[in-house]
Amino acid sequence: MTTQDSNSIYHQLIATELLQWQTAMRRKPNFWNRTTKKVQKKVNSIIPEKVHKAITKAIKEITRAVIFGSGFTTRTRREVKTLEEIEIKVKERINFYSSSAAVEGAATGFGGFLLSLADFPLWLTLKMKMLFEIASRYGYDTKDYKERVYILYIFQLTFSSQQLRNEVFEKMENWEITKEKLPNDFNAFDWRTFQLEYRDYIDLAKLLQLIPGIGAIAGALVNHKLTNKLGKTAVNAYRMRDERFREVKMLNP
């Protein structure tokens, strides 16, 4: 089999995976999604506004520090590689970060309540670092402000309700149009929705990390599973921007 034939077969497999993923991202909220969202909204309405503001500010500042940190200006890789070669390396990095997140989750879970509080910034840093590396592997310049917003959209797409997932996916699917409309001020990003959706998505799973005896196991499993999920979302999000798969988008408008 020639290299060209191998690439063609790989592209066909990827096209199928991408179409399945796009279909899942476009799926409308079902009864369970809507019911869960209503319950979460009710709970959030009970929480005092000053608490929401404090949490929003904390998440915003932590995320900004990660996004703009000097350690996250990953150099864009310019060497020419096939998509298959790129994705072999990407999957290696996803496995690395998923395993690292599992170790971190186990350590903080084993330490009880106080150490579990430290899990949020540590785990967030690992996830963002992974996204930066994935973007770089696919050839995107992570120094570009708009590429960093795309990274935030990937994060949101993974840790959101199905309703918001539909909205974010539409922006990403039409990225060339979306990025031209982005405000120049990073503060204009909807941080309130970002933190509420993220908290609602992971709260139940992460609560298990606070329970003595099983906290370490829960922390390891949750961190590994969700970090891996984020990595897979990123892979498909960057595949979607590849000109070779534009026809996939046309198959399922």
Rank of each mutant, 00 (worst) to 15 (best):
E247P: 09
L221G: 00
V39N: 11
F31R: 13
S70M: 14
V235F: 03
S116P: 01
L207K: 14
F186P: 01
F96K: 09
R192P: 05
L13G: 09
T125V: 01
A107L: 15
Q40M: 13
R34N: 08
E133K: 00
S99M: 07
I211R: 03
R137H: 14
G111Y: 11
M240F: 11
G112K: 11
F155E: 07
I9H: 07
L208P: 01
N33H: 15
F31T: 09
E104R: 06
Y145D: 03
L182D: 07
F72T: 05
Y140E: 09
T108S: 10
R241V: 06
Y198K: 00
V168L: 06
F155Q: 00
W21L: 04
E176Q: 12
G139E: 03
A135L: 06
F113P: 07
F159P: 03
T125G: 00
E247Y: 15
S6V: 12
N236P: 03
E167G: 07
I55Y: 12
T227M: 03
F132N: 00
A205P: 07
G109T: 02
G109K: 00
Y138W: 15
A220F: 10
R199G: 06
N236S: 07
F186N: 00
I55C: 05
R199H: 01
N187T: 05
D200C: 05
M1I: 13
Y97Q: 01
I86R: 04
L164N: 05
R75Y: 10
S6D: 12
T125S: 01
Q20H: 13
G105N: 05
D144I: 09
F68R: 10
Q163M: 09
R199D: 02
S45L: 04
R34S: 12
Q163S: 15
E176F: 11
I67D: 03
N174V: 12
K42R: 12
F120V: 11
A220R: 05
G69Y: 03
S161G: 14
